[in-house]
Every structure is written in structure tokens, then in C-alpha cells.
Write a protein that binds this DNA or RNA. Structure first.
Lengths: 213, 213
DNA sequence: TAGATTGTTAATCGATTAACAATC
DNA sequence: TAGATTGTTAATCGATTAACAATC
């Protein structure tokens, strides 16, 4: 299978590698030195330096022996890998606590994400403001998706209506669903589904607190 | 190394298995049949039936040939595995959008989690209510942790103060940090750290939307 | 130069998948 | 019984780790 561009590194990354690359990005953003060694990255993230080097070897970047990796270049590569320099307009469906918090989240800007609208079907909420956004009825969905070329939608509705909302979003042309409802959703093939169910993290914590010595 | 109890299954699960077991739990909660086959679980979650059987084989439960797995028993086992039947009192630090949303989240009850307090250091927020909880100053931390035997704390403060808050929580006896700040935190060994950084999910989406054909 | 650090190949490890016997 | 489905062992696959040559 053809996975490479000429002169470029492979576009397919092992999933664990991709997850670690996100951590490198977060870490490097807080560094103000010019260079960092695989050893230092490894220490901060509690992994091995070999793994760091292997991960970075997937990118179009080389480090300098005795010096390490040039942080701005590394950030640039990672930024391109995750498409951070291109801003995606996203919408949020569900103006409850979680949806509203998400709509006001300040960290989106620096990863190339902009919330352009928030929707709800509760007439009490429609017309009220969440930050600078007015809550819109779902009948405005199609217009907004077209106008702002929205490809990504966050679902922050109760479990019961999550599938219904998903179907509607897909019908209106949404390409990726970012699901915050604790529901197992079905999407047509070709549509991306990313589950952000918040209960998962604390289940891991409960499990490990109980089972360890 | 001793990993087994007499007559019990191993307590160590491969991490990917543990993640899938959470999905099985979520899925089975919505089923109202008595039995389900590995094939059906697999279809719903888009994995293979062999994997489902292998995962379930880690539990103290056996299925019935021709019938499948008894759903209530499976739920019971998973509930025990994740310590759902024992309620953990947790606290939230940071009464901003995300912290407040978390404090009001309705889904905690059914996984054995109860939010007993929310803290902030902003005097404007202290004394106001988030749902039924009054926002408390951090000087009340020690008292609350002791009184409610709190082992788990969610961090919903800005990146800049996340480490400082972490240190304080650990000092006051917290055993697990559930970190919602996009920060790389350091914790002493023996303290559990679970990162729930919300930007990670959408980075995956952006990456995959851009790189796929 | 000597030494530190990268980059890559080979070896190991662990998880997934395949195959099939056991069983209801 | 025949057939469907579980449970487990063996084979495969893919990711991590180890080793070391390349290089600044």
C-alpha cells in the first residue's frame, strides 16, 4: 500500500506514538529553551529516551548529536501534523453545563479550533448567551454548517438524545463527531467519531486505587 | 510475581483490555435483554468477537455456549472491577466553567462517584453556589478531605496554577489527581495521575480529518 | 579528539488474531 | 443430535526496548 509521499515521512503513525506526540507538543509549548534532548523529554514524561527518539524519527526533523532537538522546529512539525495552523470552525450541540463550559473554553485558539455556534432544542435556552455566542435552535444548523464550513461538532446532550443528534449532524454534512455523551454512537463509515466520555478517566482511577497494594 | 488470589482471576489487566471493558460496561447498561453474545458486543463496538471473549475471560464469569453471557452477571463483575459499588467522595478544585459543569454532572452517581465540595481561590466566587454546593476557599481543604475521606480530586484550574494546586492536594492527603488542565504535572510516586486534557481528543480529530484521503 | 547524543537495525515483548476443541 | 457459541492454546502481528554505529 502506498503510504509515503516522495521525500516525506510516512503519514501513518502507530496510535500510541500519536498520543505521545501530543504530550511532546504540550510539554514543548511550556519550554523556552532552544534545544531539548530525548533524555529530558523522556524524564519529564516518564518514558524512555529510546521511545522519544523513535517517535520523533517519524517526523521530518532530525536532531543534533550532543545538542538535541530544535524546539521551534519540533513544534512546527507537530503543529503541522495535528493541523493546528489551520483553524477549524466547530459547533457545539447542547447548551447545558458541559456544552457551555466547552463553548467558553479558552484553550481552543492555540490549537486551531474556533467555536462558531452553540445549539439547543430547549426554548428556554434559545436566545440566551453563552459567552459571546447566542444559543441557536437546531433549525439553524444547516445554515451555520454551510456558512462557516463546519466539519466538526461536539455533542454535549444527554445520553438519550445523543444518537438522534448524531444522525442529524451527519445528515447536515458534519464529518467528525466529538462525543461527550456517555453513549455508544453509530456513525456511517467515513464519519469520524471521537469519544470523550468523562466517566472513563475516573473509572481508571477507581480501579487502580482499589486494586493496588 | 504474585498476581493471583486463590480461586480468583488475575488482578492485572492489559491496559487496552481495561479500556474495552469500560466500553462493554457502558454498552451493557443500555441493554435490557438477559444474555448477549460475544458476536453482538463485537458488532456494536466494531471489534472482533475473539477479542471480546478474550477480554471477558479475564473476569470471574463464564458464558453459555449457544446463549452468550448473562448480562447482569457481567455488569456485576465489571462493576466490582471498577469499584462502582463503593462510592468515592471527590472534590473539585477550580469553579470556572469546567469545574462547575463537572460539579453538576449527573452521571457520577451511577458509577459510584459523589462530588462533596468545590474549591476556588477567587474571593468573588467563594460563597456562591454551584448546584447545591457552596464554593469553598482552599483553607477548608484539609477539613473537607478528612471529614469526607476524600481520596480523589479533580483539577479544573488554569494551566499556570495546576502544579501548585497538585502539590497542595497531595500534601493534604489526596491519593489520585484527575487533571483537566492542559499541563504536564508531576506527582510523587504512589500518587495516581489521570490526565483528561480535553484538547487531546480534538487533536486526533484534526489530524485524521486532514491526513485521510 | 573524546564524549554525548542522535538515528536505526535487530531482538524482545506483549497484545491481537486464528484455529479449534469443549460444551450446552 | 446438530449447531452455535464459548474458552483456550498457538501463531501472528505490531510496538517497545536494546544495542550500537553515525555524527556533531
Amino acid at each position: 500500500m502506498l503510504k509515503n509521499h516522495i521525500g516525506r515521512k510516512p503519514l501513518m503513525f502507530p496510535k500510541p506514538t500519536l498520543e505521545r506526540l501530543k504530550l511532546y507538543y504540550a510539554l514543548l509549548l511550556t519550554e523556552n529553551k532552544d534545544y531539548i534532548s530525548s533524555d529530558e523529554i523522556a524524564k519529564r514524561l516518564k518514558i524512555t529516551p529510546e521511545q522519544v527518539r523513535k517517535d520523533i524519527s517519524h517526523l521530518n526533523i532530525t536532531g543534533k548529536p550532543k545538542v538535541g532537538y530544535h524546539i521551534p522546529s519540533l513544534l512546527g512539525e507537530l503543529s503541522e501534523l495535528f493541523g493546528i495552523s489551520v483553524t477549524d470552525n466547530i459547533i457545539i450541540v447542547g447548551a447545558g453545563g458541559l456544552g457551555s463550559a466547552l463553548a467558553r473554553y479558552k484553550g481552543f485558539e492555540k490549537i486551531g479550533v474556533k467555536v462558531v455556534a452553540i445549539f439547543d432544542n430547549d426554548s428556554e435556552k434559545i436566545g440566551t448567551f453563552v459567552g459571546e455566542l447566542m444559543v441557536l435552535p437546531l433549525s439553524d444548523l444547516q445554515r451555520v454548517v454551510k456558512r462557516f464550513k463546519v466539519r466538526i461538532a461536539a455533542i454535549c446532550v444527554p445520553e438519550e438524545s445523543a444518537q438522534e443528534v448524531t444522525d442529524l449532524l451527519v445528515e447536515k454534512g458534519i464529518k467528525a463527531i466529538w462525543n461527550f455523551a456517555p453513549a455508544i454512537l453509530h456513525v456511517p463509515s467515513g464519519i469520524l467519531l471521537e469519544n470523550e466520555d468523562i466517566t472513563r478517566g475516573i473509572l481508571s482511577i477507581k480501579h487502580m486505587l482499589d486494586k493496588k497494594g
